[in-house]
Measured scan of single mutants.
Amino acid sequence: KKSYVLIKVKNPKTKETHTIVVPEENLEEVLKALASQPNVKVVDIERFP
């Protein structure tokens, strides 16, 4: 059974918020990819039960 993680990201320029759902096993690479985006800020990470 896969567990999923909900990542909320915000664009500081446009103030838009997006929610991305990723499998927990991919969380680290997704966070690394997001960290390299200049106008993306991770605001929240939630685990799915």
Rank of each mutant, 00 (worst) to 15 (best):
residue 45 I to K: 01
residue 31 L to Y: 02
residue 47 R to I: 11
residue 16 E to Q: 11
residue 9 V to S: 01
residue 20 I to H: 03
residue 20 I to V: 04
residue 27 L to R: 02
residue 13 K to R: 12
residue 5 V to L: 06
residue 39 N to M: 06
residue 35 A to T: 08
residue 21 V to Q: 05
residue 8 K to V: 08
residue 6 L to P: 00
residue 20 I to M: 07
residue 48 F to H: 06
residue 5 V to G: 01
residue 46 E to W: 14
residue 9 V to F: 15
residue 41 K to W: 11
residue 7 I to V: 07
residue 29 E to K: 10
residue 4 Y to E: 01
residue 11 N to C: 10
residue 34 L to P: 00
residue 16 E to P: 01
residue 23 P to A: 12
residue 42 V to K: 01
residue 33 A to W: 15
residue 1 K to W: 12
residue 29 E to M: 13
residue 21 V to Y: 11
residue 43 V to D: 03
residue 43 V to E: 04
residue 19 T to M: 09
residue 20 I to K: 02
residue 6 L to I: 09
residue 20 I to F: 15
residue 12 P to S: 15
residue 36 S to Y: 07
residue 15 K to V: 03
residue 21 V to I: 12
residue 38 P to R: 10
residue 7 I to M: 02
residue 33 A to G: 06
residue 36 S to C: 10
residue 22 V to L: 03
residue 8 K to Q: 04
residue 8 K to C: 06
residue 6 L to W: 14
residue 4 Y to W: 13
residue 13 K to M: 13
residue 26 N to A: 09
residue 2 K to S: 07
residue 46 E to M: 14
residue 24 E to W: 11
residue 27 L to E: 02
residue 28 E to D: 08
residue 2 K to A: 07
residue 36 S to A: 12
residue 5 V to K: 01
residue 3 S to T: 12
residue 22 V to Q: 01
residue 25 E to G: 05
residue 45 I to N: 01
residue 48 F to Y: 11
residue 13 K to T: 10
residue 44 D to V: 12
residue 45 I to S: 01
residue 9 V to W: 15
residue 5 V to A: 04
residue 11 N to I: 06
residue 26 N to W: 13
residue 14 T to W: 04
residue 48 F to L: 12
residue 13 K to L: 14
residue 23 P to Q: 09
residue 25 E to H: 07
residue 37 Q to W: 11
residue 49 P to Y: 09
residue 2 K to Q: 10
residue 22 V to A: 03
residue 34 L to Y: 04
residue 48 F to E: 04
residue 12 P to Q: 15
residue 12 P to G: 13
residue 32 K to P: 00
residue 41 K to P: 02
residue 1 K to V: 09
residue 13 K to P: 02
residue 40 V to G: 03
residue 42 V to M: 03
residue 27 L to D: 00
residue 7 I to P: 00
residue 33 A to R: 12
residue 17 T to W: 13
residue 6 L to Y: 14
residue 19 T to I: 12
residue 13 K to Q: 12
residue 18 H to F: 15
residue 17 T to E: 09
residue 8 K to I: 11
residue 2 K to D: 05
residue 48 F to M: 11
residue 47 R to E: 05
residue 10 K to Y: 15
residue 26 N to K: 12
residue 13 K to E: 09
residue 12 P to E: 15
residue 24 E to R: 06
residue 32 K to Y: 09
residue 6 L to M: 11
residue 43 V to R: 02
residue 47 R to V: 08
residue 7 I to A: 00
